[in-house]
Amino acid sequence: MKQTGYLLDPETTIVRAVEFPAGNSYKPLYDLIGCRMIEVVRFDERHSLFVDEEGLRDGLSAFTIFEGYPQPLAGKIVLVGGDGSAPYASPLISVEDAAAYFKCCRPVLDPVFATGDEVTAGGLIIAGVLMGLQVRIERRAPTIVEGEA
């Protein structure tokens, strides 16, 4: 027998239904997320998120904001039915309803150019020359993909 869950990948912003074997084993979740340690985050009273416990690390290129949760979640996320204390089950909500709670984020570097001739302590900067980079966070709703991964 198989269970269904929803897998969100913040790198691609894709969320889709996935199947894995039913039972008490967390191994299928480790395999889907691709990590060594899993953290359980309550989604609501009937659902749980399984996330990479070590996902927030140096070199982070994408992360997820989960509405109402105080910190970003990094790495892939699996949503399943159940509160995380008993064997998990298939979600009781649609993938569209689940996706509405997430924003996939990634840092973006925007070039900053001199707008006119400027004189600085380092010398003359000519209009149009790259002066530096400015960081912003791009936020996007997950893209729902039909079918299984």
Rank of each mutant, 00 (worst) to 15 (best):
84 G>S: 01
3 Q>Y: 12
50 F>T: 08
111 P>G: 02
59 G>M: 03
112 V>I: 11
64 T>W: 00
66 F>H: 14
141 A>H: 11
136 R>E: 15
83 D>M: 04
109 L>H: 11
62 A>M: 04
20 F>N: 12
138 E>R: 06
109 L>W: 09
111 P>Q: 08
62 A>K: 05
28 P>R: 11
19 E>I: 10
24 N>C: 13
100 A>K: 07
148 E>R: 11
43 F>Y: 12
85 S>I: 10
106 R>I: 02
100 A>D: 10
81 G>K: 02
11 E>Q: 15
27 K>F: 10
149 A>K: 08
2 K>S: 15
6 Y>M: 08
148 E>V: 15
100 A>I: 02
69 Y>P: 03
134 Q>R: 14
1 M>D: 15
14 I>P: 10
33 I>P: 01
25 S>N: 06
26 Y>S: 13
49 L>A: 13
104 C>E: 11
148 E>Y: 12
15 V>G: 10
31 D>Y: 05
52 D>E: 05
42 R>T: 12
97 D>F: 00
131 M>P: 00
113 F>M: 06
53 E>F: 01
100 A>M: 02
54 E>C: 08
37 M>W: 06
121 A>C: 11
2 K>Q: 15
124 L>D: 09
76 K>N: 12
123 G>N: 06
116 G>L: 03
135 V>K: 12
141 A>S: 14
5 G>T: 02
57 R>P: 00
107 P>E: 09
77 I>R: 00
106 R>V: 00
127 A>R: 04
56 L>Y: 03
143 T>M: 06
22 A>L: 07
137 I>S: 08
9 D>K: 08
54 E>Q: 06
59 G>R: 03
7 L>S: 02
78 V>Q: 07
41 V>P: 09
45 E>T: 11
75 G>A: 02
145 V>Q: 14
12 T>G: 12
12 T>Y: 09
80 V>Y: 05
47 H>L: 06
83 D>R: 08
90 S>K: 09
143 T>S: 06
128 G>V: 05
110 D>E: 13
141 A>L: 09
39 E>L: 05
43 F>V: 00
139 R>H: 14
40 V>Y: 10
122 G>Q: 14
140 R>K: 14
